[in-house]
């Protein structure tokens, strides 16, 4: 496999974990931690898949997702949403905003890996 993943997340330990899991599988992982400038980061890195956290400093993950879906170049970009809140309405929100896939923290490492592979393969 292999490709570029952009991880938008602000918890250092979670970043560390996901980076480890994905790079072991041959992925190039870029990390961005600030909500406000996330869109710029997407444009700069042009990733194959995005992993997006909901609770980010300065801007919510949903808003970022909405922007991505509204823009021409990123409308079909696969986005994996992560949230630690894990309530029902969070899943509904994610679907409404157009997330390709949705996962609740804590996740299993293999699930993350499988999801990323499937999203890029599809």
């Amino acid at each position: 496999m292999g490709g570029r993943v952009l991880l938008i997340e602000d918890e250092p330990n979670i970043i560390e974990a996901i980076r480890f899991i994905l790079s072991r599988d041959g992925w190039a992982v870029d990390v961005h931690s600030d909500g406000a400038t996330a869109i710029d980061a997407v444009a700069r890195r042009s990733p194959d898949v995005i992993i997006l956290d909901v609770m980010l400093p300065n801007r919510s993950g949903y808003d970022i997702l909405a922007d991505l879906r509204a823009a021409e170049g990123t409308r079909d970009l696969p986005v994996l949403m992560l949230t630690a809140r894990g309530q029902k309405q969070d899943r509904e929100m994610a679907e409404r905003y157009g997330a390709s896939r949705f996962m609740t923290k804590p996740f299993s490492n293999s699930d993350v890996l499988t999801s990323v592979r499937e999203l890029v393969g599809s």
């Binding site: 918890e11 330990n13 979670i14 560390e16 974990a17 996901i18 899991i21 630690a84 809140r85 894990g86 609740t104 923290k105 804590p106 996740f107 299993s108 490492n109």
Partner: peptide, 10 residues
């Protein structure tokens, strides 16, 4: 959940 995520992943 946030600390648990790290714990589980690692």
């Amino acid at each position: 959940r946030t600390p648990m995520t790290s714990i589980r992943a690692f």
